[in-house]
Structures are given as structure tokens and as C-alpha cells.
């Protein structure tokens, strides 16, 4: 809708569509995941990344593109992101991309970023709800050979310079970095409150908005590096883990007995190793 201004930020937001975790089943016979019956939604931290991108656009202008890799059914979710505020979207979709681990995924996404063209910033959600690897942003930065910052809490543009100031989470604290652009930044989950869909944009997003769908031919990807073929890791087995439902186990006895049982429990749960 808004053309990128000359000094605005060209931002690409990586977005993944994930199945509802509680609806994913493991097929005990084939040892594979059955996602067929599961509803999907936009990976929640990716909405935090989108909000970060839109705030930066509000502050310094520019353009926000959405980039995703996955099957064609992802497209409506990309259009939803357009209705929230993004300007255009690209979906990397090809059977050849299927079964990719992080090495192959980051290679393919990097080819997508290169095809979109010049960029200042790639923003990703910290990690995906399904894989929870948090490895895509650093891998993508490496393929693109640009700076990276992970676990970002706050991001602002340094006026007049090709530079961002990023606050990043550390164990037990945070650090502030200055980062040369272009860069890949992963945004912590829940660092902001994603704005809701703008229904005035809905008609445009659903009907007119450009959503580019690119396959292996469009990206000129090396077949040795994409999909299952390009993935060094393999899944040797899967199993369903007990439901996270609450146990509702009643502890009874004298106050002293209950206290002892609780103390044992807490020592294991908090990993407190005798102080």
C-alpha cells in the first residue's frame, strides 16, 4: 500500500504456520506425526516479530514483506499478516522443499530473501512452537553473511546511520548492542502486544494484495541443499509424551509428612541441589 521511501527500512518478516500443539498426534505404527486433523495458526512469536517490523515502519517508514516456506495452505495466513499491516508476502512452496531440517530450511529461506532483493532487516520470531529449535535466525544470517542478533527485546533504528540499537536477552539480564545493517534479528516471544487485524485492509489483503509463490525453479536452488536431500539430520523415532494435563494428586498426612513430600518434590522440580 505504501511505497518504500528512500530512507525507510526494508524489512522482511519470516513467518511460519504451525499446527495446534495439542492436536498433533503421533501415528504409533509409522512413527510419524499426524498433523492432518490439527488446526493451524501463525507461530505466536512471529506475530511479535511482525509487530516489531510494523512499529519500525511507523517510526521510520519503509516496507514490510512477509516470507514463509511451506505448503500452499499457508497462503491465507500470509494474507492475514497483510491485513495486520504488512505490504507484500512471498511463499516458498515446492515439494522439493519438504522434509527440510534447519540447514536446508535456512538455505531455502536465504534464497528467498535474495530473490526479494535488497533488504535492511530480517525479523524472525524467537522460535517456532512446533520445532522450538530457535536455530533458523542464526542459520539464515550465516547463509546471507550478515550480522545477527537473537533473543531481541527492543529494537530501534539509529537515525542517519545503517545501524540498529538492539536490546538482547542474556541469562539473568540483558545487553544492548549496536548492529550494522543488514542484519537478521530474532525477537523474543511476548516482547510486545501484536496489533490486531485491521479490517479496513481485509478486502485488499484477501483479494488484491500481492502474494508471490516461488518454487525451486524460481529460486534456482541447488537440489542437493533443499528438502530432505539437504538435511543432515534425520528423525530416528517419535513418540507421544504424556498429556500436560494437571495430575491433581492429593498429598495427605500430617503437616510434617506433607512438608517432607513437598520438599522432596521441590528439590527435584527446581533442580535446587542442596543450595
Amino acid at each position: 500500500m505504501n511505497p518504500a521511501s528512500n530512507n525507510g527500512l526494508r524489512t522482511i518478516v519470516c513467518l511460519k504456520v504451525v499446527p495446534r500443539p495439542e492436536e498433533v498426534r503421533v501415528d504409533a505404527e509409522t512413527m510419524t506425526l499426524d498433523r492432518a486433523g490439527a488446526q493451524s495458526f501463525i507461530n505466536p512469536p512471529d506475530l511479535n516479530a511482525l509487530e516489531t517490523a510494523l512499529k519500525l515502519k511507523d517510526a521510520c517508514g519503509g516496507e514490510v514483506s512477509i516470507l514463509s516456506m511451506g505448503p500452499p495452505f499457508f497462503e491465507p495466513y500470509l494474507r492475514l499478516a497483510l491485513a495486520v499491516g504488512a505490504d507484500r508476502a512471498f511463499l516458498l512452496s515446492d515439494r522439493a522443499f519438504g522434509g527440510a531440517d534447519t540447514l536446508a530450511t535456512t538455505y531455502t529461506l536465504a534464497k528467498g530473501v535474495e530473490k526479494i532483493g535488497a533488504f535492511d532487516l530480517v525479523l524472525c520470531g524467537e522460535e517456532s512452537l512446533d520445532g522450538a529449535t530457535a536455530q533458523v535466525p542464526p542459520g539464515l544470517a550465516e547463509w546471507l553473511d550478515v550480522a545477527q542478533v537473537t533473543c531481541a527485546l527492543e529494537i530501534e533504528k539509529v537515525p542517519g546511520k545503517r545501524e540498529m540499537r538492539v536490546q538482547r536477552e542474556l541469562k539473568g539480564g540483558s545487553e544492548t548492542l549496536s548492529v550494522d545493517l543488514p542484519a537478521v534479528v530474532s525477537v523474543k516471544a511476548n516482547v510486545n502486544e501484536p496489533r490486531f487485524i485491521d479490517y479496513d485492509r481485509m478486502e485488499w489483503a484477501l483479494q488484491e494484495a500481492p502474494v508471490g509463490v516461488w518454487g525451486a525453479g524460481d529460486l534456482a536452488t541447488d537440489p542437493e541443499l533443499t528438502g530432505l536431500a539437504g538435511s543432515p539430520t534425520t528423525v530416528a523415532g517419535v513418540r507421544q509424551v504424556a498429556t500436560p494435563d494437571r495430575r491433581r494428586k492429593h498429598l495427605s498426612g500430617s503437616a510434617g509428612e506433607i512438608a517432607r513430600a513437598l520438599a522432596d518434590l521441590l528439590r527435584t522440580q527446581t533442580g535446587s541441589r542442596g543450595g
Binding site: 499446527p19 512452537l129 528423525v235 517419535v238 509424551v241
Partner: peptide, 16 residues
């Protein structure tokens, strides 16, 4: 590793 909010556990190997 666990995924899907902890509901699924997988064994991952890197063979070559």
C-alpha cells in the same frame, strides 16, 4: 528433543 509444546518427543540423528 521435544516439540509441539512438549507433546511429542523425537530422536534425532546426524548420520554423515
Amino acid at each position: 528433543v521435544t516439540g509441539f509444546g512438549g507433546g511429542v518427543a523425537a530422536i534425532i540423528a546426524c548420520k554423515e
